[in-house]
Amino acid sequence: MDYSVGLAQNQRVLKQRNALGIAVLVLLGLVVLLFTLGATRDREVVLQPILRNPLSISSSGVSADYLEMVTRDTALIALNRSPENLNYWMDSILEIAAPEAHGALKRDLMKVVQEQGGSSISQYYTIDSMTVDPDRLTSEVSGTLHTVVGSKAVTAEVKRFRFIWKYSGLSLQLRGFGMVKPADQDEMGRAL
């Protein structure tokens, strides 16, 4: 009787060992397959040829170079508009807006769309200088705001615009922007 109990236990251990061996072989096959797929898969690197320095994004904060590039692109989108591109203009700004600022920005942008829609008034902005403050998450652009009616240039005024940002995780989002009035500047001419 002891012999039959011992034989049954040996058979059970043998079945467990064989099942474990098969599981190990299957997992090893999957690992080899995954490494093969990973090694032969196309790799993609996004190159930004207009950068003067290598750029990295960190959860600890936004770099001055990154804030400058995003401000430049946002200023060009926000300050260049014509009646033909008003919907694209508004949608582009709202795509980079922080969720909590989305409603207020949309309300203000809709006013511009309603005022400028159907008219022949266009504007474009030429940037002369830019300052960024990554600690306060603000940036300012100074330049000339040109207004064109039809095909005739009407005004060219020097204006300064401030952009206020939110940085959470690895995402930089627009909280608001507007023209800096002379009363908003300190004695050194720097915007507060």
Rank of each mutant, 00 (worst) to 15 (best):
D2L: 09
S4G: 08
R12Q: 11
V13I: 11
L14Q: 14
V24F: 04
L27V: 11
L28V: 09
F35W: 05
T36Y: 14
T36M: 07
L37I: 11
G38W: 02
A39M: 06
T40A: 13
T40V: 14
R43V: 10
V46M: 13
Q48M: 12
L51R: 07
L51W: 08
R52M: 09
N53L: 11
S56W: 04
I57M: 14
S60C: 11
S60D: 15
D65Q: 12
Y66W: 11
L67N: 02
L67K: 00
M69F: 10
A75W: 09
A75F: 09
A78I: 14
N80L: 06
N87C: 05
N87Q: 12
Y88G: 03
W89R: 08
I93P: 09
E95I: 07
A97P: 03
A104F: 12
M110F: 02
K111H: 08
E115A: 12
S119T: 14
S119L: 07
I121W: 08
S122I: 00
Y125N: 05
I127V: 14
D128V: 03
D135F: 06
S142Q: 01
T147F: 10
V148Q: 09
V148K: 11
S151Q: 15
V154Y: 08
T155P: 00
T155L: 08
A156Q: 11
E157W: 07
K159C: 04
R162V: 13
I164F: 12
I164K: 15
S168W: 01
L170W: 05
Q173G: 02
L174F: 05
K181E: 15
P182N: 08
E187K: 06
